[in-house]
């Protein structure tokens, strides 16, 4: 079966989730009050906004990931043809990894992998 199955699966997922939520909506008569609408913070009203500019620590990892993930994508076609290409592929990948690893070490040295 072709790519159409992906559409079918997606529709199935939406139908399944949507049905589940709809059924529970129908089963239940919801009431509302002020306390119900509050964000959960251990029973204490939230102080200050939650949508703030967040500490950069998390984003650094996302950036480094991006670099590595792109490299990983390059590796996939290479991996498929390793068997046919043989030694050349090995030399290639050593050069590739050497550059990548240098970058990695540099990032490590700069403390980008240190959680702050």
């Amino acid at each position: 079966m072709g790519g159409g199955s992906l559409i079918a699966l997606m529709i199935a997922a939406i139908a399944f989730s949507g049905m589940a939520i709809l059924i529970s909506k129908f089963v239940l008569k919801a009431t509302t009050n002020k306390q119900k609408g509050e964000a959960y913070e251990c029973g204490i009203p939230t102080q200050g906004p939650s949508w703030i500019q967040f500490n950069v620590g998390y984003y650094l990892f996302a950036l480094i990931f991006l670099i590595f993930d792109v490299e990983l994508i390059f590796l996939f076609p290479w991996a498929v043809v390793v068997k046919q290409v043989g030694w050349l592929a090995f030399v290639e990948i050593i050069i590739f990894f050497f550059i990548l690893f240098m970058g990695f070490l540099y990032a490590h040295k700069k403390g980008a992998l240190q959680w702050k």
Binding site: S24, K25, V27, L28, A30, Y40
Partner: peptide, 9 residues
């Protein structure tokens, strides 16, 4: 299913 699916304010 019987539980209420709340959407906070």
């Amino acid at each position: 299913i019987v539980k209420e699916g709340m959407t906070p304010d």
